[in-house]
Design a protein around this nucleic acid. Sequence first.
DNA 1: AGCTTTTTGTTGCAAATGCAACTTAATCGT
DNA 2: ACGATTAAGTTGCATTTGCAACAAAAAGCT
Lengths: 150, 150
Amino acid sequence: MPDILRSIGIIDRALDTIANIEFKEVNLTRGQYLYLVRVYEHPGIILERLANLIKVDKTTAARAIQKMEKNGLLERKMNPANKKQKQIYVTDKGRQVYPLIHRENLYSNEVALTGISPDDQVRLHDLLEQVAKNIEDDYNTVKRGEKRQY
Amino acid sequence: MPDILRSIGIIDRALDTIANIEFKEVNLTRGQYLYLVRVYEHPGIILERLANLIKVDKTTAARAIQKMEKNGLLERKMNPANKKQKQIYVTDKGRQVYPLIHRENLYSNEVALTGISPDDQVRLHDLLEQVAKNIEDDYNTVKRGEKRQY
DNA sequence: AGCTTTTTGTTGCAAATGCAACTTAATCGT
DNA sequence: ACGATTAAGTTGCATTTGCAACAAAAAGCT
């Protein structure tokens, strides 16, 4: 069985590093682009779901969101139907930087897929989605403090 | 052109989180497993090459190595042929934890590839290696402080 | 209804991460 | 051979990251 974890780690860290450096021009600090994109796509999303989408600790996400709220990129509104929940939205200012993030992501994706046939690109995409689905349960299990059996 | 970055990020963060939690039992702190495996595979490797293999900042790698040296997992020897270089090796103690890391990685990889045919597993592996190669130059360019044109 | 469990979010540490800036050794150019 | 550039590693500082532990609201249970 071939190893796929190593390449995935390399690719993710490399592209994340590139993104973080490039987004400093737009005054985004480390990781912020991830949250902005996800909130943009899911207006009104709550913290725990956002953290689970991105696969990042909820306390990390919480502080990132707080900071982005302070910087005027995001805003939170209390959900009147559920006083525990704070719904997160992109502000106008946040909406202005979104296209730049999107453009960067598109470009990196393009570079990543260079020389790969359209068919294989789709295959790769589908296989990666399958892998993401495959590990989801283990992630939640371990995060909950339970142990994996192996 | 399908997006592959998102799944890759999710998979990497999820599996990295799992690994870090599981390796606390063996007294490894965040990220240390990555270095240990790479040094194990490349005895005598130097810091800068190690950092570039893993795609992590060299100062981050430097401090991780220092800490692992203090904990007796790794050791460094001055290269007599080049006084700048410090060659890194796994110690006996480090060699003892290696099998546990390897086993965990194998298991996560297995979970990740569940339900994917052997043919597709190989295809996925090969495509990911291609992607890793595709982005290598951009990574080094941006790390060097130069800009990407897009 | 009343008690327990789960959901959602927050703080308090301690540690890792990485950009800037620096030192020293090696290599390059001429 | 010597000055300039690159390679290799380190330290300072600010920030992010995440595990524990907590608080409060909501949902489940009987």
